[in-house]
Write a protein that binds this DNA or RNA. Structure first.
Lengths: 206, 206, 206, 206
DNA sequence: TATGAATGAGCATTCATTCAT
DNA sequence: CATGAATGAATGCTCATTCAT
């Protein structure tokens, strides 16, 4: 009941082996880390030749950047859909945001882990771009917290700090989650939502 | 007022260059990651020759293990002192535990970051030993949460899950903390304590 | 008249630098021994880069194994041709076998020396394979001795022991032979044949 | 009946750890070859520290030289004793020489193997000295063969060549001998003596 | 004698990347 | 797009040797 076969992060891009390479890179970076994984590892995983990698990505670093971009895009998309479909109050919106985040972590744990652990190895320009994209996610949460603080739904002071702490906890899920764990995907999402709302000192939450 | 010059994690061990090597390794692994940093980097940082490193540690992997062991020992020691000196109620104990943890993160952020990011590169045996040691820390938090749940101080269900989430958030601090940030060390500790108690649904906490 | 420029052991294999690498390895291992010669020595001798060696052979040990395999193949081939072309009696067959062996030693002394001295450094699996191949050579001699013993051509008891001793002496030739020595290739072969037949106690031999 | 526990080549020299070091070096060079064995291996085997080795021998190369010198001294001594105690005729003398040689091979196989395989790694001067010492051994055999050729006991022409071939075969014994083999030490010696005399075309030998 | 710490050179091997085809 | 061969730089690690004690 609990099982959920992880699905490839990147679907066919309409460009030959591109998706296979990106997914193999995700796998390799996830298993051995950016510096621990070699381009040969990636090529082997993608079922293509080493040199062919360079027909798609000009460098290992750019390959990592693309992997992380795809991961972040997927997360952001899910987040926006969830928040848009939620009710108007901050509690509902936060609950849906947390749920969506947790579901992403469960569906694409490896992508989440790699995103967390390997950003630091991005080249300057790519790093900055990703930081900006990540800030968008953070902004979603901050805005909800701020809304709740204004409406009295959340009593925590310093909305930005609190939002960051909530996100820290959510990102942390990827580090310990195991698909065969006690909680189902839905239960895990529910639990994390409760933690978030409690942390934000929502008087109605429990 | 906010500044606090980070102090070496490892003090003189009474064995030649050992402390210098451990501290240089921490620095190097922190800056470039385990696989990104070379033994030459470590040697340079320690002011000794590459080959001399191997008179102290038989491999890069064992060097990492020793760095992480020292870091964890320091954290565990601080934690136990803090909890022992706290009052008897769960709220006080949790507050002190969180404060001690945050102070460790601030004092030894690099050690904390490396501990979080590079454990995965430990060899089998070393990995297991560290996991055991880490579980001791987790046990401290779990026990406090369980105590609070029993006494009614915390209303959160599933003490173990909640404790893990609190710890996730605290470990996360090391990833974004900057010494020149808005909050002083004490304020940061206070804030995190509040988040933790709120998350645990302590009715008296705020 | 005596000179005979040693010819490369390995001819073009149709795969880029492979033959050049094998021959350079033979030269290097012969000059400095397996552990005394470095892959850099081999690369230099083959006129290619160090790293390119690994596009052909996955390790120094496997490179040695291939060198020895080529050497043994050549010896075995020559031996079989010689014995097949000899008369039916044991004396003729032994004489031709010894002659062929000696000619191989003279033509590929280095290969012979390396085969003798460096087998021990082969990895388990490669070692076993070569031992099997070598046993084939020994079997050729044993069988001839056995035939001669049965027909009365050789009066030595224990054909297997005698065959081994003959082979020991032949292999020993590679250790002291000098191309500028007193005896020509043919004379040397003749002399060794006489020694072998005498050792086997062939009444007609002299 | 066949067993004969190999005894240390070098007995106490009256100089601290010297004998232990020499024997450990023999063991190490025998197991891994001169370049494959490290001074650390030798130190470990001798139960002393790495640096202490240099109080006894100024270099690895000189250590090898001393090992080989001790081995050759023992062989030469045994050989001279055997020949001196033999009768006056060439056949008896040759038989005793071969017997003594074989017994040395059996008693100190490792020393024999190392002598054969690692001489080539000796430094110029040490190499020359050992070659001279070895020539003494060869001279013993040559002289016996020459005597036998003169007296008609041996009918082989070219005494020097024949002597060399006999010695080649004897040295070869060390490469294949196993203490648990079919033949006892005495039987092996007898067999080799028969081979030698046959090779030398001694009409009375069989 | 004996040791532990130190070192510079060297080792086999792997790396990301390039290029001719 | 795809490949196999090629390369220079780097990697973790070991080496014989030295030296202060």
């Amino acid at each position: 009941m609990n099982a959920r076969s992880t699905v490839s992060l990147v679907g066919d891009t309409g460009r030959g082996n591109e998706a296979a390479i990106l997914n193999a890179a995700l796998e390799a970076f996830g298993a051995k880390g950016f510096h621990g994984a070699s381009m040969r590892d990636v090529a082997r995983g993608a079922g293509t030749s080493l040199s062919n990698l360079y027909n798609y990505f000009p460098s290992k670093s750019r390959l990592l950047a693309e992997v992380l971009r795809h991961a972040n895009d997927e997360l952001v998309t899910r987040l926006h859909v969830a928040v848009d479909e939620a009710g108007d109050d901050a509690v509902s919106r936060m609950r849906e945001a947390v749920r969506a985040y947790v579901r992403f972590v469960v569906d694409h744990q490896l992508a989440m882990v790699v995103s967390t652990n390997e950003v630091r190895y991005l080249d300057g320009e790519d790093r900055e771009r990703l930081v900006v994209d990540r800030d968008a996610t953070q902004a979603v949460f901050e805005q909800i917290v701020a809304q709740g603080a204004a409406s009295g739904e959340f009593r925590t002071p310093h909305p930005a700090d609190a939002a960051r702490t909530v996100l820290s906890g959510l990102a942390g899920v990827a580090q310990w989650y195991r698909p065969d764990g006690r909680l189902s995907r839905g239960q895990l999402a529910e639990q994390q939502a409760r933690y978030a709302l409690a942390l934000l000192e929502s008087p109605l939450a429990h």
